[in-house]
Design a protein around this nucleic acid. Sequence first.
DNA 1: ATGAAAGCGCTAACAT
DNA 2: ATGTTAGCGCTTTCAT
Lengths: 329, 329
Amino acid sequence: MNIKDIAEICGLSVATISRVINNDPRVADSTRKKVLSVIEKHNFMPNITGRSLRTQKSNKILVLLPTMDNQFYTSIIEGIQDKAEEKNYATLVAVTNLDQTKELKYLDMLKMNHVDGCISLFNTLDPEKINQLSSKFPFVQCCEKTIGADVSNVVIDNETAVFETTSEFIKNGHKTIAFISGDYYKYSERSREAGFRRAHQQADMFLDEKLIIKHFYKYTDGADAVKYLMHLEKMPTAIVCASDSLAIGAISELKKNDYKVGKDIFVIGFDNTSITEFYNPSISSIAQPRYELGQEAFNLLHQKLINIHSTNKKIILPYKIIHRESTGY
Amino acid sequence: MNIKDIAEICGLSVATISRVINNDPRVADSTRKKVLSVIEKHNFMPNITGRSLRTQKSNKILVLLPTMDNQFYTSIIEGIQDKAEEKNYATLVAVTNLDQTKELKYLDMLKMNHVDGCISLFNTLDPEKINQLSSKFPFVQCCEKTIGADVSNVVIDNETAVFETTSEFIKNGHKTIAFISGDYYKYSERSREAGFRRAHQQADMFLDEKLIIKHFYKYTDGADAVKYLMHLEKMPTAIVCASDSLAIGAISELKKNDYKVGKDIFVIGFDNTSITEFYNPSISSIAQPRYELGQEAFNLLHQKLINIHSTNKKIILPYKIIHRESTGY
DNA sequence: ATGAAAGCGCTAACAT
DNA sequence: ATGTTAGCGCTTTCAT
C-alpha cells in the first residue's frame, strides 16, 4: 500500500495525495476529505524512506551515548527527547560503549543523511575530525566536549565546581584530600582535576600526587582507590569523587574498614543521581542540571538544523553542591 | 558526491561501482582496484537511504526501551548489540518512557521499513495489535511479554523464581512475608505475584492481602512500602521485592527505623544489578542472565528477519537466587 | 485545483 | 566483465 495505490483508489494523481499528506493548501476541501478517508480506511502510512530520499531529511536525530550504565544520562535524554518532539523530531539513541569503531559507524548515519543531526554525550574523535564533521552536519556536544574543537556545546563549569568543593573542604580544616576520577572522559576529568589542583594552589597547600587516583567509574574503582589510600602514610580526611558510583564504591570500602563516613572522613560524589539520597549514609554530590542540559543541547542542534552555518555557541549551565550525610550534614 | 559522480570519474557505469561497493565478484580485479582507490580518494559513502529504498532493507534494528532509568537494561542491550553486529545490523534504541504515543511513533519506523526489525523490552500494546504487527514485521519481546499474544519471546520463569524465593523464606520459619512490586509491567509483575501466592498456598500459609504492595519502581516506592508495613499489626520478617531499586528504598527506610536488615528482617531484590554488592548491607537478589537474554532476543529476531513466517519461539532462560547480607549471609 | 513527469541514490535484471 | 535501464515511494516544478 503506497501513495500510488491511494491515488488509484481515489482516482487522483499521486501529486494530489502527496499534497494532502503534506497539508498543502492547494487542494479542494472536498478532495482532501475524500483522500483522507481513503487513507484512514486503508491505514496508509507514507513511506519515510522514499520521502527522505526525496527531501534529504529524516526528521530524526541521533544521540551518541557512551554507556547505558549510568543513571546520569536518563534525564539528559529526556530533555533532548522532549525538546526534539516539540520540533517534530524523533530521537534515536546509539550506545557506543566507548568503542570508536561503533562511534564512526553511527556517525555514518549522520553523514548519509539517515538522521538530520547528532548530539554527542561523548565521543573519542579528535578535534580536526569533529570540526570537519560539524561544519558539514548538525552536530553538538553535551556534557563532554572535545578540547580544541570549535563546536556548539553545553556543559557545566566542571573546573569551578571541583575548585569550590575542594576549597570548602580546605576551609573546613581538611589537610589531606583525595581526588578519585576516571581516566577516559578527557574534558570533564581534566577540568575537575584542574579545579582540584587550583584549590590547593590557592590555599598554598601541598598536594601529594598520590592523592589523585584515576581509573574508571565502576563501583570497584572507587573501592580500589580507597584500598590504595589506606596504605598511604597519611589517610585523607576527605575524598572528592568524579561520579556517584565512585563515591559509592569508596564509601562501601570505607565502611568495611570501620571508617565513619561523614565523621572520620568526608566523601562527595558527582552528578547527584537518585541513589545518593537512598544510600547509607546519604551521599553529598555535585548536581548538574541534567534535564536542562539535554534541552539546551537540542536547542543548539536545532539552530544547526535550520542553518548549518549559524555560529557555534558554547553554553555553560550552573552546577549545585548538595551536602548530605557523607559530608557531615 | 554520489555513485554517479564516482562512475563518471572512473569512466564506468554506476552498475559497476555498485558491484564494487557490494563485493559482487563479477568485476575485473583491475577495475575494482581503480574504483576503490577513487572511492577512497573522495571519501565516498553510498547513500543508505537510496539503498534502503531500493533493497527495502535498512540493516538496522530498533530496541524499544521503557526507561533508561534502570541499570538492568544495560547488559541486555549489550547482548543484543553484540549479536546484531555479528549479523551486520546497527542497533538503535528508542526510549518510550511508558508512553504509548511514543511507542507507536517508534513502531512506525518498523512499519515504514526504516528499521528491519524490533526488539521490545516492554510495550503497552494489546495482544491483537501485537499479533498483527508481528505477523507482518520482525518483532520479538524480551523480558516482558504480552500475555495472550503469540510472538517470539525470551524471558525467565518469573513465577517460579519468586515461588522458590518465598518458599525458602517460609521453610526458614518466616511467618509474615511481604511482596513489593510495581504495577505496570503486567507480565513479570503478575507472574511474580503469582509465585508469591503459590508459595503460601503450597505451605498452607495464610496470606494477608495487605502484605502485597504495588506502586512503582522508584526508591521512594520501596521506602513508602516499608512505612506502610510498619503500621501493620504484624511487621513482616521478610520482604520480596520485584526490583533492586525497591529493595534499596525498603532497606534504606528500615535502617532509618533501626531495623537490622539481614537479622531482624530479610530483604531480597530482583535483577542483581551491580549496586547490590556495594550497598550496605549487600543486597540479595534474583539474577536474570541479562546478556544472554539480549543475545537470544536478537537470535529470535534474526530468524524472523530471514523468514517472517518462521514459527514463533518462546525461550525461557534460567534465573539464579543470590544470597548476600540482606538475607543473613 | 489537479496532473504529468522528473529525479532523489541506489540495486538488480537483463543485455551486450 | 561491463553497461543499460527500470524502479523502489515520495515530493515538487511546471503545465494545464
